[in-house]
Computed example of a mutant assay.
Amino acid sequence: MIESCTKRRMILAITFLGGLTLLVLVVESNWTSGNGRNHVAVVDKNSSNENNCWLHEEFEIVEACHPCTDFEITSKSVGVCVPTHFKETLSCKLSGKVVSRRCDKVTWLEERNFWLFEGLMFIVGVISTTFVFTRQRILDRRMLRRIQRQLASGV
């Protein structure tokens, strides 16, 4: 079935599927980006309850999830940076304390890496397609010359 499709139909189908994929990604990104569930709710046994005020108080996110510095990770000065290498800063409303908690991932970093990957795959696809079409033209010309030689020799 795919062999019977013309080049124009194939390009239209690929463009349609690519557009549909982008639409789904945009819609999913808008629905899932603001849920605030990117933190790990595991409490370290070594930390005191005053650093875990976010578990039993209302809190406000001062700084969104971001990567820890290399110094914080290697020196272990900030304990929440060791397991996941990401932290977010919170301000507890009742006690007024500003604490850090670990989080799974940085949303903007994950999105940037995804789009870099998609862009790279697009570029590789365009280059591959160009090579395939170029090689097909070369092979078609060779076959045409061979047929012309055979016809000229009278075979």
Rank of each mutant, 00 (worst) to 15 (best):
I2C: 11
I2H: 08
S4R: 05
C5S: 12
T6V: 04
K7G: 11
R8L: 07
R8K: 08
R9I: 07
M10G: 05
M10E: 11
L12P: 03
I14C: 09
T15K: 06
L17N: 13
L17K: 04
G18P: 04
G18S: 14
G19W: 03
G19N: 10
T21V: 10
T21P: 04
L23T: 03
L23E: 14
V24C: 08
V27W: 10
V27M: 09
N30V: 13
N30D: 15
W31N: 14
W31G: 14
T32Q: 14
G34Q: 15
G34P: 05
A41M: 11
A41V: 11
V42R: 01
V43P: 03
D44S: 13
K45E: 15
N46I: 06
S47K: 12
S47R: 06
N49I: 13
N49Q: 14
E50V: 09
N51C: 15
W54D: 01
W54L: 00
L55M: 12
H56V: 13
E57C: 00
E60L: 09
I61S: 03
E63H: 06
C65H: 00
C65E: 00
H66N: 04
H66V: 02
H66Q: 09
P67V: 02
P67R: 00
C68A: 02
D70L: 05
D70F: 07
D70Y: 06
S75G: 05
S75C: 04
S77W: 07
P83K: 02
P83I: 00
P83C: 05
P83Q: 02
T84M: 07
T84W: 03
H85Q: 04
F86Q: 00
F86D: 01
E88A: 08
T89Q: 15
K93F: 03
K93A: 05
G96K: 01
K97V: 04
K97R: 11
V99A: 02
V99K: 00
S100P: 04
R101K: 02
R101Q: 02
C103M: 02
D104Y: 11
K105T: 12
V106Q: 07
V106L: 13
E111H: 07
F114W: 07
W115E: 15
W115I: 14
L116R: 11
L116N: 08
E118G: 06
L120Q: 12
L120R: 08
M121Q: 09
M121K: 06
F122S: 15
G125I: 03
G125E: 03
I127G: 08
S128K: 11
T129G: 09
F131C: 14
V132H: 04
F133T: 10
F133H: 08
F133L: 15
T134H: 08
T134N: 10
T134Q: 10
Q136E: 13
Q136F: 05
D140H: 11
R142G: 07
R142P: 02
M143D: 14
L144R: 10
L144A: 15
L144M: 12
Q148Y: 07
R149P: 02
R149F: 09
G154W: 00
